[in-house]
Computed example of a mutant assay.
Amino acid sequence: MKSKAVLLAAVLGLSAVLAGCSIDGTQRIFTSEYGSVKDAGYQLPRIPISKVPRQYHRQIVTYQTDEKPGTIIVDTTEKFLYFVMDGGKAMRYGIGVGREGFSWSGTARVALKREWPTWTPPAAMIKRQPELAKWAGGMPPGLSNPLGARALYLFNKGGDTGYRLHGTPEWWSIGQAMSSGCIRLLNQDIIDLYNRAEVGAKVIVK
């Protein structure tokens, strides 16, 4: 009887691993949710998630904060974005952040949300990279668009900050500091965050 119980426990444990979800009362990891996705007529490719460090896989974690549920907290040092949930929990996403000289911090709010957004490089970026001038009027949505499948536009008291929370096809950039200041997530993760975050949500970048 004891051996059967041990075998059952082993089978259940293996099933959890294969499902890509680990539940220990405080944490659930959504490793299995990075397959190919058809979205608004686009076929997002599968992400080779085994090549992305496990800490950057989407997961529910214990997270203590005085901020109310629905708040987004970006930790640019640890390369995590937290969506605050009830009960001392948060959905945590791995992110890519601004490279040296392009990082930023402060408080903003989600003013707009867009599915498959157009990307318009700012004038300063075009000056640094003249080859982007062809997109001065906007780059159409698509799998190669730098904003990916979704974008959340951040505004503060001064108006549009110019910064976005957005998807990226460059899965290898998660956990790195290599963007021009915007916060990038895996496309499958930005879709998840987009569905959770409300227009008007507070965003804290630190």
Score class of each variant (00 low, 15 high):
Lys2Tyr: 12
Lys4Val: 15
Val6Cys: 04
Leu8Asp: 05
Ala10His: 00
Leu12Tyr: 12
Leu14Trp: 08
Ser15Leu: 15
Ala16Ile: 04
Gly20Phe: 08
Gly20Arg: 00
Cys21Ile: 14
Ile23Asn: 06
Ile23Ser: 06
Asp24Leu: 08
Gly25Glu: 06
Arg28Glu: 11
Arg28Met: 15
Arg28Ala: 15
Thr31Ile: 11
Thr31Trp: 13
Ser32His: 14
Ser36Cys: 07
Ser36Phe: 05
Lys38Met: 05
Asp39Asn: 14
Gln43Ser: 14
Leu44Phe: 00
Pro45Gln: 09
Ile49Leu: 09
Ser50His: 06
Val52Asn: 04
Val52Trp: 09
Arg54Ala: 15
Tyr56Asn: 02
Ile60Tyr: 03
Val61Gln: 04
Thr62Ser: 15
Thr62Leu: 11
Tyr63Val: 08
Gln64Val: 14
Pro69His: 11
Ile73Glu: 14
Ile73Val: 15
Asp75Met: 11
Thr76Leu: 03
Thr76Gln: 14
Thr77His: 07
Tyr82Gly: 01
Phe83Gly: 04
Phe83Pro: 03
Met85Ile: 06
Met85Val: 02
Asp86Glu: 15
Gly87Asp: 14
Gly87His: 11
Met91Gln: 01
Arg92Trp: 07
Arg92Cys: 08
Arg92Val: 07
Ile95Glu: 00
Ile95Thr: 06
Ile95Tyr: 02
Ile95Leu: 07
Val97Thr: 15
Gly98His: 07
Gly98Met: 08
Arg99Phe: 02
Arg99Asp: 10
Gly101Asp: 10
Ser103Glu: 14
Ser103Gly: 13
Trp104Met: 09
Trp104Ala: 00
Trp104Arg: 07
Ser105Thr: 13
Ala108Asp: 02
Glu115Val: 12
Glu115Tyr: 02
Glu115Pro: 02
Thr120Met: 02
Pro122Ile: 11
Lys127Val: 11
Arg128Asn: 07
Gln129Lys: 11
Lys134Met: 08
Ala136Ser: 15
Met139Ile: 07
Pro141Asp: 09
Ser144Phe: 03
Ser144His: 05
Ala149Gly: 08
Arg150Gly: 10
Arg150Tyr: 10
Arg150Asn: 07
Tyr153Gln: 07
Tyr153Trp: 13
Leu154Arg: 06
Leu154Pro: 06
Phe155Asn: 11
Asn156Leu: 08
Lys157Gln: 15
Lys157Thr: 14
Gly159Tyr: 11
Gly159Glu: 07
Thr161Asp: 05
Thr161Asn: 02
Tyr163Val: 09
Leu165Phe: 11
Pro169Glu: 01
Glu170His: 09
Ile174Ser: 05
Ile174Glu: 06
Ser180Phe: 12
Ser180Gln: 12
Ser180Thr: 10
Gly181Cys: 03
Ile183Trp: 05
Leu185Asn: 01
Asn187Ser: 12
Ile190Gly: 02
Ile191Leu: 14
Asp192Trp: 10
Asp192Gln: 13
Leu193Asp: 08
Tyr194Ile: 09
Asn195Cys: 02
Arg196Asn: 04
Glu198Thr: 05
Glu198Ser: 13
Gly200Ala: 06
Ala201Ser: 15
Lys202Pro: 02
Lys206Met: 10
